[in-house]
């Protein structure tokens, strides 16, 4: 006979009689994992959207020449473009072409193109230098001198509250994920204690035969890990279905703003890693709870 602490073999896994899906724990973990994956996906998507907004629009401004007379409008637009191109801190200036304007206005004015009777402002996209952005007030003052009908809109100004909202939602999602992890750990502790109580007589017999706490804990750890793996897999699969469904609805809306909240590839990897993390967490928490409880036995 060999001494020392040994693992129980596959035959001894039968020591715990109930099947792995007999109790509610796998389903509770599945629900927890479902909510965790959704919260994590929301956090990742909103984080990506906030970054995308900041990168795409935060350093941009739009100049509108609101002049009903087409000739004066054209002249002011040219002067405004010329002025902007020579301003320090302006990285790129692009006059929005008539074709692009027609495309932008098509949802409201139809596909007949721009009617010369409809006074449509001339628009100029301005990309500001990220390193040395200009003062928008001085830029606005210079523009008005060169083109009195010019209006300067700072995209970052109206996007900032949206960005802050997205950031707040992202942190809320992260907090939800952490709360879910805590709740899952608490569930595992309760399940481990319940399992110990259920099998107390078997554990006492094992102890009296010389089984160590680690040997006994392994029996429970393995079972709880299987429960967590099942729950994690089911929760992830359900959450993935929901995410795909939401993704297809968002794609159908054709909204650039909502579309920017898509999950990056790394995000999907993180979501798939969540159940694996859940299994490891469940095993460690169960082991700790069981060893503490066994330590109080004789």
């Amino acid at each position: 006979m060999k001494g020392g602490v040994r693992r129980f073999g596959s035959a001894d896994r039968r020591l715990l009689p109930e099947g792995r899906l007999a109790g509610p724990m796998p389903w509770v973990i599945a629900i927890m994992m479902f909510l965790t994956v959704l919260a994590a996906a929301a956090g990742l998507g909103l984080g990506g959207a906030a970054r995308s907004l900041g990168a795409d629009l935060g350093n941009r401004a739009t100049v509108q020449i609101v002049e009903a007379n087409p000739d004066r409008r054209e002249a002011e637009a040219r002067r405004a473009v010329a002025l902007l191109e020579n301003q320090a801190g302006v990285a790129k200036v692009r006059r929005v072409s008539d074709r692009d304007m027609a495309a932008l206005l098509e949802p409201w004015l139809g596909s007949g193109g721009l009617d010369s009777d409809v006074p449509v402002p001339a628009m100029i996209d301005v990309e500001l230098s990220q390193a040395t952005p200009p003062s928008l007030e001085s830029l606005r003052a210079a523009l008005v001198q060169a083109a009195p009908s010019a209006r300067l809109d700072d995209n970052g100004q109206w996007l900032a509250p949206l960005g802050r909202l997205m950031n707040a939602l992202k942190w809320l999602a992260i907090a939800l994920v952490l709360l879910m992890i805590g709740a899952t750990a608490a569930t595992v502790v309760l399940a481990a204690r319940a399992a110990l109580d259920t099998h107390r007589s078997t554990i006492e017999v094992l102890h009296l035969m010389g089984a160590t706490d680690v040997q006994v804990a392994r029996l429970f750890q393995r079972r709880i890990a299987l429960d967590a793996l099942f729950g994690g897999g089911v929760g992830l699969a359900a959450a993935a279905l929901v995410l795909f469904a939401i993704g297809s609805r968002v794609a159908a809306l054709g909204s650039d703003l909502l579309g920017s909240a898509r999950l990056p590839a790394l995000g999907w990897v993180l979501l798939v890693a969540l159940p694996v993390f859940g299994v490891v967490l469940a095993m460690l928490v169960a082991r700790g709870a069981i060893l503490r409880a066994l330590g109080r036995m004789l």
Partner: peptide, 16 residues
């Protein structure tokens, strides 16, 4: 939950 065989084998399995 264990058979007679497995009950008798228990001390040996505990001992590895």
């Amino acid at each position: 939950h264990l058979s007679a065989f497995d009950n008798i084998a228990l001390p040996l399995r505990v001992a590895g």
